[in-house]
């Protein structure tokens, strides 16, 4: 899952640094993730994992790092 998330961040995150140089816990907003780009990330993750983030997850914090996204998605994807 982490690899898929990283690929989506790379494609939609429009970061100012190379995603490969970031740890899973790195703050993506500090790496240049904008509000609009985080929305694109959210939509791309939903499409990739066939999920719909509930209202409570539609906030900045859910997409602040690769680890945060993984945690959010794990809650929604049947294990």
């Amino acid at each position: 899952m982490t690899e898929d998330i990283r690929n989506i961040v790379k494609e939609h995150g429009r970061l100012s640094v190379d995603v490969a140089s970031l740890t899973d816990d790195a703050d993506l907003y500090a790496a240049g993730l904008t509000s609009h780009a985080s929305v694109n990330l959210m939509l791309a993750l939903e499409a990739k994992f066939d999920i719909e983030f509930p209202e409570r997850m539609l906030r900045r914090k859910s997409f602040e790092s690769i680890a945060a996204m993984k945690a959010a998605i794990s809650e929604l994807v049947p294990q």
């Binding site: 959210m42 939509l43 209202e55």
Partner: peptide, 12 residues
Amino acid sequence: RAGRMLAVNQRD
């Protein structure tokens, strides 16, 4: 839907 997230972010 994307807008709801932008709105929450803007408030937060």
